[in-house]
Design a protein around this nucleic acid. Structure first.
Lengths: 246, 246
DNA sequence: GTCTGATCTTGGTCAGACCAGTATGCTAAC
DNA sequence: GTTAGCATACTGGTCTGACCAAGATCAGAC
């Protein structure tokens, strides 16, 4: 029928995507709403169904929309998985990004702990306490220990009651899980790290309980710094001597 | 020919996506590589071309791949725009997220300024200085002033030499541009804010020059806090009185 | 009033086709 | 031998019309 591009050089896909984007941003399409069928959308915008599907698929990977087989397409609440996907790919292609991601994680967590000091409620405190206890219990186990560590830090972020921080932390931390595990392997190799892990988390917990943002931030930051230092020395291979002399 | 799903209930799209994901994560597909043509991919995986296009489109919006008209599909370096898209949609559907996003931005920037104190080079200092000068020059203009403000903060993040932080900050700040602008409108309405804006940025700049992470972080954090306070008072509507009495 | 089955609708997919430029290589002119 | 030109194969961008399987719906049977 017509040319493949509209007058202004817009591609068919862009046309559909822009159409949906508009409604989504304007708010006329809200989470839970069901879109009109692919066929209707196609005839409405004067494009073919495969093109419509491309656009819907694009929104799907962005976590904006969910295509349900034989049901229809519905608008969803934005989901974290997008960020996970992105960082996963990004990390795979730039291995040197790992340290960078860690920096971002520290950023998020230090901000979160400040907010947590202001906003944490009883439930948050309890979650933190449970996580702290678990760190002590699993100090000798690599996997469970790493999990407990992760849970503690996650509990901090949750206590910030900031969804954006939680989402970001979730994506970033997901990439660093093996980092946690490798840290735990260090523990098994060098039992001297046990006190560092337990005491540090305890101090962080105390600062949050005291609702002291400055102290909490500083303590957490130091915690990360020491962890870095441990890993660095482990790489050099003289961790035992260094600790013994410290 | 066959059923629409493979034996394990995998959809055609997932099949193609998984295929490409594998190569991308494994590293056999690196940035700059050109994929085989859509037709070849289709016959190779036993699916139709529209399905292949869905998968490629999905990778496109994830910023992993770029489809070039009449050229082919090439692997690109992961791009920020994904995060931008995501946050834009996410924000649109959860307006209350704005404050949340601001918290995340503060997090990123405070971490960035710490790194900047360690890593900034002459070029970074010069960029900061230029931005600082521009803030002074454009103090009376709403749009240009907001831009200058943004440039200064961006210069801080760039000076951190952390791509991840830069990427995240870019996405978050993009959502907050109108926040900058509205702040500038406050300036026009209440000239008493001029000194706050100029002096604060100057102090931040000085701390970075001095390579003092703690001071830089604290100063920047205070800067944001004061900005928040201004906005809050502006909403209440008694900003003049408050400032006059302070 | 409830249950049941035919029918409509929806997403998932395919096959084959056309268009408009790009890339390439071969031919013909210099 | 070199190079300008052009035919051709290839690429993405798109359309059409079709089929399948299963959820949704509603009329009709009980």
């Amino acid at each position: 029928m017509e040319l493949k591009r509209t007058a202004d050089g817009e591609t068919g896909f862009e046309k559909v995507f822009a159409f949906l984007r508009e409604r989504l941003l304007a708010g006329s399409l809200k989470p839970g709403d069901r879109l009109i069928s692919e066929r209707e959308l196609a005839t409405l915008l004067g494009v073919s169904r495969p093109i419509v599907r491309e656009a819907l698929r694009a929104l799907t990977v962005l976590g904006i929309v969910e295509i349900r087989d034989r049901i229809g397409t519905v608008v969803t609440r934005p989901d974290v998985s997008v960020l996970n996907d992105f960082f996963t790919f990004a990390l795979a292609q730039q291995a040197d990004m790992l340290d960078d991601v860690m920096q971002a994680r520290v950023a998020i967590e230090c901000q979160a702990i400040r907010l947590a000091c202001e906003r944490a409620n009883i439930a948050d405190f309890e979650r933190l306490q449970r996580a702290l206890a678990k760190i002590g219990e699993t100090i000798d186990e690599a996997d469970a220990g790493g999990m407990a560590d992760f849970e503690f830090h996650r509990a901090i972020v949750i206590a910030s009651h900031s969804e954006t921080l939680t989402v970001l932390h979730g994506s970033l931390a997901g990439l660093l899980t093996h980092s946690h595990r490798s840290r735990r392997k260090l523990v098994q190799a060098f039992p001297s790290m046990k006190t560092y892990l337990i005491d540090d988390h305890r101090r962080i917990f105390d600062a949050v309980i005291a609702r002291d943002p400055e102290r909490a931030d500083a303590t957490l930051r130091k915690h990360f710094a020491i962890g870095d230092e441990y890993r660095r020395r482990a790489i050099v291979g003289d961790i035992d001597r260094t600790i013994a002399s410290g």
